[in-house]
Design a protein around this nucleic acid. Structure first.
Lengths: 242, 242
DNA sequence: ACAAATAATATGTACATACATTACGATAAA
DNA sequence: TTTATCGTAATGTATGTACATATTATTTGT
């Protein structure tokens, strides 16, 4: 066992255990589809109680990373290895499999000071930095999707943390922010007067309405987005309320 | 206390407790923003141990329905009251707030036998019924969005279970299917040769690509969708793989 | 040889218990 | 009046223990 648990650390044991399991899965120490050691055994190895270990495993099961099966054991979910499988890279790989080639994408992540509006939205002060993420996805030199997302400081990103190493590592050390889930709902609607006016487009133009729920252990936030075509690029505005 | 827990029932106590809390929140017995009784007290009331009660609360916290705060207590998440808040009804209400009126929507839910393709996709036999959900959203008599979704029998719907009472009630009694989360990712892309061919449309036409992760405690499933405009209606096809 | 009973082994459920941590409020000291 | 300190009430963390349940593997009976 390469890694182990530090009983003197202020970080809760179950959180450490969760992180450790994540690492082992990601490093494919525990491989795709294979079972991990049984709870009693593993608890003994890590020198923690089975109850505590289960707390850690539960989270990963809930996330879909691990799958429990009685008598058989707990295995790494098939095709779901590591948190990487939901990120941009795997996305483009999947697209490739479908015969779609995607080139020239850009990703820009920065910490910025929010303007008045955003600060209000997040209910923080303007001197507290938030994470800004811009994504441009393109195909043969023509970018056609542009995302801008801002994240509340409390929300430690949302599952595709893998986009940029250094940042990922920063977050990796603060496991209190890890249990984050997001849920999205997107609808294609026709712009009515209100929206058409707001976006300076004609009534009836197709608009994407995106509702995004981000929730960590602490609180839930809702983000609204309106997306529309502008020329030959697709613009995604962070609209929103809470 | 109107409801209580049946210690003789084969249904696990923590599952019963979870269901009970859900009911109380939904019935607004425990109101939006208000704290629920403290854990020690509530455990005593329900005649279960605090540990067991916490197991139930944990799930709801993870879902975002409840919010814990030390010293203060556990409150019903603000603006998130009951599972209803994420469903179609609340959606249209929100739209109304934004000045958009949505009328004439239809919702059709049936249990159907899957065809060969779908059965393959879900890895079930063709004699096992699956849930089919059709949604039409319209505005002033013109439907502009059409959804078709199929759900794996194991997945007990995904959070907007509230669309039709009888069915919701069926599921309500099988709490093993309740801990379901879904995660969606939608991208607007320009159709390339592959897609254009598949959907019989011109290269470059705007297409929605939807990737949907549904995972319950047992397993994770991925659903891919391609959406496109056909005349003045929007068609959403269930594509995909697992 | 094959079916039925049984054992073994993993997770699942449940409890009692203890102490840690956090944050607010009240009280005391400067 | 302001600042420290301390008490308290909630959740947070952690363990030990016990028995239930489901599933596979083995043994037993015909």
């Amino acid at each position: 066992m390469k890694y182990s648990i530090d009983h003197k650390s202020p970080i809760p044991l179950h959180v450490q255990a969760e992180a450790l399991l994540r690492k082992l899965i990601e490093a494919e120490e525990y491989q795709n589809g294979k079972t991990i050691p049984n709870e009693v055994e593993l608890a003994k190895q890590l020198a923690i109680s089975r109850t505590t270990l289960r707390q850690a495993i539960n989270k990963l099961v809930f996330e879909g990373l691990l799958v429990r099966k009685k008598r058989f054991g707990t295995k790494v979910a098939n095709g779901a290895v590591s948190s990487r499988s939901n990120n941009w890279l795997s996305f483009s790989q999947e697209m490739k499999l479908r015969g779609i080639t995607i080139k020239n994408f850009e990703l820009h992540v920065t910490w910025v000071y929010p303007d008045e509006t955003l600060a209000n939205f997040f209910e923080i002060k303007t001197d507290r930095k938030i994470l800004k993420m811009e994504r441009v996805r393109g195909k043969t030199h023509e970018p056609f999707v542009y995302f801008v997302s801002y994240f509340h400081p409390r929300v430690g990103l949302t599952g595709d943390e893998d986009f940029k190493r250094p940042l990922y590592e920063i977050l990796e050390n603060d496991y209190s922010t890890i249990a984050t889930l997001s849920k999205e709902e997107i609808t294609a609607i026709a712009a009515d007067e209100f929206i058409a006016n707001k976006l300076k487009m004609e009534i009836g133009s197709p608009v994407l309405f995106r509702k995004r729920l981000v929730f960590d252990q602490a609180e839930r936030q809702i983000e609204y987005n309106l997306g529309y075509y502008k020329g030959d690029s697709f613009v995604y505005t962070v609209e929103s309320s809470r």
